[in-house]
Write a protein that binds this DNA or RNA. Sequence first.
RNA 1: CGGAGCGUGGCGCAGCUUGGUAGCGCACUUGACUGGGGGUCAAGAGGUCGCCGGUUCAAAUCCGGCCGCUCCGACCA
Length: 569
Amino acid sequence: MPVVRMSGLFGRTLREAPSDADSANHRLLLRSGLIVQLAAGVYSFLPPAWRSLRKIEQIIREEMEAAGSQEMRMPAIQPRELWEESGRADSYGPVLFNLKDRRDRTMVLAPTHEESVTDLFRKVVQSYRDLPQSVFQMQTKFRDEPRPRGGLVRVREFIMKDAYTFDVDDDAFQLNYLAMRQAYYNIFERCGVPVVAVQADSGAIGGKQSEEFIFLTEIGEDNIVLCPSCGYAANQERAEFARGPGNGTDGELEEVETPGITTIDGLAQFLDIPPQATAKAAFFLVDDQPTFAVIRGDLEVNELKLINALDAQEARPLLPEEVADAGWVAGYASPIGVEPISVVADPSVVDVGGLVAGANRVGAHLRHVTYGRDWTAATVADIGMARPGDPCGQCEAALDMQRGIELGHIFKLGTRYADPMEATFLDADGERRTPIMGCYGIGVERLMAAVVQANHDEQGIVWPRSVAPFDVHIVPLGSGPEVGKAVERIASGLAEAGLHVLSDDRDERAGVKFNDADLLGAPLRITIGARGLKQGQIELKLRRDSALFSVALSDGVVAAQEALHSLSD
RNA sequence: CGGAGCGUGGCGCAGCUUGGUAGCGCACUUGACUGGGGGUCAAGAGGUCGCCGGUUCAAAUCCGGCCGCUCCGACCA
């Protein structure tokens, strides 16, 4: 690859970042002139950024192929009917970019490709002899996100690597799944981003089992619950936790006047009991059904768990007037007398003795409210939101919570798509069967943002060599012919050795060049100046170190290769 | 979709309260000096002040509407 001259590089560095960038990676990507925003969640990727993205893609490609997957390409424009077939036209609805073709047919811009790959399967695969299969694609996907944010973290147009596997049964599927899982670890490791695999909810993609690969960072938008003791890790949206010993006290049902007390904290103070000795009610509309959720006073309801517990699609808190319409008294609600079918109880209020709960009358509560004796629920399920400090569901140690960015997500889809789309194959006995599918995604630009977030300092990006736009950044100082000749010699020598070289041929001050070199973050900087050349020396510096070392001009190419080789990545 | 904020030259900002010739720093162009961590001097170019409407002799400034962007929440990979 030819040497790139900075004077001709398309893009410019900025001394000050645009004010609407608040994370380090976003600021640096903008300041270094790597990305330019066009609209909310829509970016251009200038030549250095594109080089880095292509290196990331190549790493992904290599690992996918090593895991036995074949690269292919699928359409970005798809008929909406395809999405109606799978039943996702509505559930995915608002995120779909819709458009009409000239014949007034409604098309969508694909946000993901489960439908199209399932369609392909049914058109291409007929026999168990064709299985297992694993295919992947890296292409632009479109999602009309409600709120793009965080620079490249949540955007509306992005490259996604998606892989899909098809197997004859669960056991065969597990092999594909584990191969993909390992490939994911390899990919993130090679890109220089530490990740943790966590249990996750499969959301709009559907399916049963799923794991997210999370880069832990304070700028992340997901809450990740981690057990420092046993290693349990899960997204807060589905994290399990232990409820600890019951705090109830047994006794007769007893009404107590509590005028003006409508909060758990107030109630606990008023009665001089711990919040754990109370039960609280939370009201939701779950798939159009008013739902009475009961949980221990100090805990919060996790709406996603509630949805899953009821096998529902959506939930939202009830409005005050809807609570009243249901006959419930906000602030003093009691599960006693409520139809069990509309009650969901968290284990924290079941078999823990008598708790203080509302009396379903303003200004009064009940003591010793006991599940089974005084009330029951049609559904008893974990609907609690895990929080830091809660005991781990596996080992009881106090859980920790950190923010993180979801870089990859792997799912067991089961027959979620094959069933409604009638994708089948014939087994050895001539029986028609449904393939077990898996899908495996990685957001490519988001990964690049994570690379920068995980590898930067005050001065700029510190690219891991594996995904750096340039391996070497040459800084010529002084304009004499001997400098030019030395630069040419080193640059062409490195380029011939297969390295990607950027040479700052601009007539700028040394300070400007050094600062831009730090900002752009090539792993190795080579300074070639008139001063050093008098001693026949040039100067090498690794971006991640502060040490400079001089070598003879004649040894420059070899020394540079050795320096790069010393980087583990 | 709820809450908050911001739109003035490529970037960062002031000016708006109290209407009256559109400004500063950086970046850019030309020249000179300078030359190893964002240098100095001089001379320049560049803006229908997001858009539309209203008030007024006069609007970046006041009023109304709309659009865009950012953040928090909802939602969402």
